[in-house]
Nucleic acid binder design. Structure first.
Lengths: 124, 124
DNA sequence: GCCGGTAGGTGCACCGTACAGCTAGCGGGC
DNA sequence: GCCCGCTAGCTGTACGGTGCACCTACCGGC
């Protein structure tokens, strides 16, 4: 309350949240890594490192969740475009469901936290 | 839709979610590891491994977020009881705020997912 | 020629997580 | 007495995701 604030509280986004984000963006339309890199920030992910993003895309490619194809660009280097597969779409549905389950757990946490706050006002 | 379902979709709870849970439970009252182990399941954490929980408690002890004391038990082995410190309370407030921020991000995800579902019905 | 933006990628260290296993106190059944 | 199961706490280790740094290559403009 008075002294030093907690130096660095981890923001604690879900584990492996990048993958669901990429799948969702690819469900909205075919895209490529560099473009996805700019779009994921709109989904709560801040400061995504490019390396991890490209690795994640490659991994999902090898797992069959997405399909990739090189596409030459008129201006600039070639792009590897990614497209969602049927398996990836199934994965998206499943992971969206589990994310909603996570959201409900977080709501339960918040409710219990607020209850502690009110009781804490009495016990202090 | 018809073939094999996604073998294992990671439930993707927040990174390091155990710590906020332990802090919240300790804010409700002094407790010890084995008891906390049974209580965290009510907060969305399923199948928490004891090793990780005890390690997490020790780590928070060393960081000054909690205070520990050995307490002999009338029946059974001695317990190390944990109590929240002021610093731990600050940490709890901060992390609860960031968890609500995460929940809002997940809501944004869900909304965008549902939008894709509706558009997908048209484009299919 | 060089710089900045676009586009993709590797190497590596760190840390949380999962799984397995271990010690020890106590109580009850055979 | 002996073993089993429950309580209670702890260690060792391997795996995987994350973050940071760094690199290549194409293109256009100064």
């Amino acid at each position: 309350m008075s002294g030093a604030p907690p130096e660095e509280v981890p923001v604690a986004l879900p584990r492996n949240y990048l993958r669901p984000c990429l799948l969702l963006l690819l469900a909205e339309g075919t895209s490529h890594g560099y473009e996805l890199l700019e779009q994921v920030s709109a989904l709560g992910l801040d400061r995504v490192d490019p390396g991890g993003l490209y690795r994640s895309l490659r991994a999902m490619d090898e797992e069959g969740l997405v399909r990739s194809a090189w596409q030459p660009s008129a201006s600039g280097p070639a792009r590897r475009t990614y497209e969602l597969t049927d398996e990836g779409r199934e994965w998206l549905h499943a992971v969206a469901g589990s994310l909603e389950h996570v959201a409900r757990s977080l709501d339960a946490y918040s409710a219990r936290y607020r209850a502690v706050l009110e009781q804490g006002r009495l016990r202090r």
